[in-house]
Design a protein around this nucleic acid. Structure first.
Ligand SMILES: [Mn+2]
Ligand SMILES: [Mn+2]
Ligand SMILES: [Zn+2]
Ligand SMILES: [Zn+2]
Lengths: 133, 133
DNA sequence: CTCCGAGTTGAGAATGATTCCCACTAGCGA
DNA sequence: TCGCTAGTGGGAATCATTCTCAACTCGGAG
């Protein structure tokens, strides 16, 4: 029996309020800065729960876990700006089929896959070009 | 000027001697068990160097970095058994093209991608089936 | 071959993210 | 409302990885 606490709601709201992948630490700092008294361990627990329930997507970058409340309810992948973190949700049935058939072709059962694309978004690219010349 | 030391050679040899992804800690333990006096920090450094030089591939799993000396010299991906770690190297030009075009379609520059497939290999699947019934 | 200097090593300390501990708090069903 | 117990949070503990730095050793110059 899961209980509804304002802490869980606060984490979910904070996550929904942004469109980039964020770490537990960063989200905790943001919540504290906004006046919340939520604890760090609770933010970690809430994010882990959200990810397990499928309410949030997670990925590993530079040794830390990042989370995002995605708009697409189903399975999808991400195109992520490595500079500002802005993220585009991507659906690619071809990739799904490829992953499944590749696993099957080698006798692997219960396939899962990690597919993420990183790049520099147009805005960040323009900013970089303007600064360097 | 990069020097040739027996420590680097030992790490590379140990890595080449296995066909699964392995952590720095595990490789250090193995080397020590085989009588080497190599230090843990050195194993970390050697693996990082090998990865940077393209001599080894690396991926993140469960919060730790794993390394593998791959047979394919060029860019490729992996199909990994989540039970025993056995790895198959995969080349998929379709995926390369898809990643590049996806990034371009959204105005993202300098795309890179992470594509890994995990599953249970035939041997591990058979072992599990035999144990459970 | 010998010498010297800069790259390399390794034990232990430091770091940083994440988890654990546990006394206290607060959902929520009866 | 009452009691049970999941949830909370501050701080300690854990764990992978990096840093520190004195000692060491490649490898090119002479
Ligand atoms: Mn997919
Ligand atoms: Mn690729
Ligand atoms: Zn950007
Ligand atoms: Zn296996």
């Amino acid at each position: 029996m899961k209980r509804r606490t304002w802490q869980r709601a606060a984490v979910q709201d904070a996550l929904t309020g942004r469109d980039d992948f964020v770490s537990a630490q960063a989200l905790h700092s943001q919540l504290r800065a906004d006046g919340s008294s939520i604890g760090l361990a609770t933010v970690y627990r809430a994010l882990a729960d959200l990810a397990e329930e499928g309410e949030a997507d997670s990925l590993q970058a530079e040794g830390e876990s990042l989370y995002r409340a995605c708009a697409s309810p189903g399975h999808h992948h991400h195109l992520i700006c490595r500079s500002c973190g802005r993220t585009v949700e991507i659906e690619a049935d071809d990739i799904e089929a490829w992953a499944a058939s590749t696993a099957a072709a080698h006798g692997f059962r219960d396939p899962q896959h990690v597919v993420d694309v990183f790049g520099t978004c147009a805005a960040c690219a323009a900013r970089q070009d303007a600064r360097i010349p």
